[in-house]
């Protein structure tokens, strides 16, 4: 049983959490995307075998949605943190949009 470190509650068994899949910022203006770009956002996944930035929800706990960096091969979790509308994510958003 993995241990996940909730930024609010600390270390808890992973069974308390729900995984929300890889972190993919929603395009700021979906209407401006053409069908292909939109389908890409909706359906395609990187599905990396390596470190993945992903969402977790503390379902049986505080109800926080937070981000984790997990190696998908070893399940080693190197970081967990709250989502922030920080520069870092807008940088990624631009990449995801492009």
């Amino acid at each position: 049983m993995l241990i996940l470190n909730c930024p609010n509650c600390g270390e808890r068994n992973v069974s308390e959490f729900r995984n929300g899949g890889e972190y993919r910022p929603r395009p700021a203006c979906p209407r401006e995307k053409d069908d292909l770009q939109w389908a890409e956002y909706v359906y395609l996944r990187s599905n990396v075998s390596g470190v993945q930035k992903e969402w977790w929800y503390h379902r049986a706990g505080c109800g926080l949605w937070f981000l984790a960096e997990r190696h998908t091969k070893t399940n080693e979790i190197t970081a967990t943190y709250r989502w922030r509308p920080a520069a870092a994510s807008s940088e990624e958003e631009r990449k995801a949009d492009g």
Partner: peptide, 18 residues
């Protein structure tokens, strides 16, 4: 199970999670 990584080698992204 590894199809995303294989496809990525050809530059193809798939609607798949493992």
């Amino acid at each position: 199970g590894w199809c995303s990584t294989t496809a990525a080698m050809a530059g193809v992204k798939l609607p798949v999670t493992t």
